[in-house]
């Protein structure tokens, strides 16, 4: 009798040593806890923690869609950042996005737009009529460098496109300010004067096509 009592107490002790007891399993709180742990895993730990990601970036070939021969002389470069925010209100939800776009506006001349006789040389004098200063690459924005500062909800492709166009419009306005065009004109004059002076011309007269 004494022996059986000893064995039952041992069993109880060993049960107590276990982390999960029968009593716990019978309790509804135990199952509530398990569900919560599952939810934590699903919402917060799915792609983090002890898990290790093996990222593979597939090197697809870069396809050249067109090749263009250009003759554009850049005289002023503006590296611009533009901040665009948008809110889309729908019947049941709303979405908001704040993006920072990076772009490079290049001001200069397109020599293909020059007059036929844009360079006239007589004796020691060179008269040059340069085409007007313009924005050389109209695309401006490098979208691979766009930073999303804030985004909630689902922003559609059309809205993203509109945001990009809005940033581009702002950048164009910044780039094509009178002061910037004046600096680009001055740089163009200096460059052509240096070239023609090195070629042996003593007087170099430069103007812009209007």
């Amino acid at each position: 009798m004494a022996l059986t009592n000893k064995s039952t107490t041992k069993k109880r002790q060993s049960r107590n040593k276990n982390f999960v007891t029968d009593e716990m399993v019978r309790s509804p709180w135990f199952w509530v806890g398990l569900v919560i742990l599952g939810l934590i895993y699903f919402f917060f730990l799915r792609d983090s923690g002890n898990e290790k990601k093996k990222a593979t970036i597939d090197e697809t070939p870069t396809c050249i869609t067109s090749i263009k021969e250009i003759a554009e002389w850049e005289f002023l470069t503006l590296q611009i950042e533009e901040f665009v925010d948008t809110t889309v209100n729908k019947k049941l939800s709303s979405a908001q996005a704040v993006k920072i776009y990076k772009g490079t506006a290049r001001l200069g001349i397109n020599t293909k737009k020059a007059n036929k006789n844009w360079i006239v040389c007589e004796g020691e004098k060179a008269t040059i009529t340069l085409p007007e200063i313009e924005l050389l690459d109209k695309s401006i924005i490098d979208d691979t460098q766009t930073r999303t500062f804030y985004e909630t909800g689902t922003i559609s492709a059309t809205v993203k496109e509109k945001m990009l166009q809005s940033a581009k419009k702002k950048m164009k306005a910044t780039a094509l300010q009178k002061e910037n065009i004046a600096i680009a004109e001055e740089n163009a004059k200096t460059e052509f004067k240096n070239i023609f002076t090195a070629l042996g011309y003593k007087t170099v007269q430069i103007s812009f096509k209007k």
Partner: peptide, 23 residues
């Protein structure tokens, strides 16, 4: 905006298309 004076003659332009895939 960062403004830089320069003198660059752009002579060739390539338009490219790339599909970036990630897994």
């Amino acid at each position: 905006p960062m403004i830089n004076n320069c003198s660059k003659l752009h002579t060739a332009q390539y338009n490219v298309h790339k599909i970036l895939t990630y897994e």
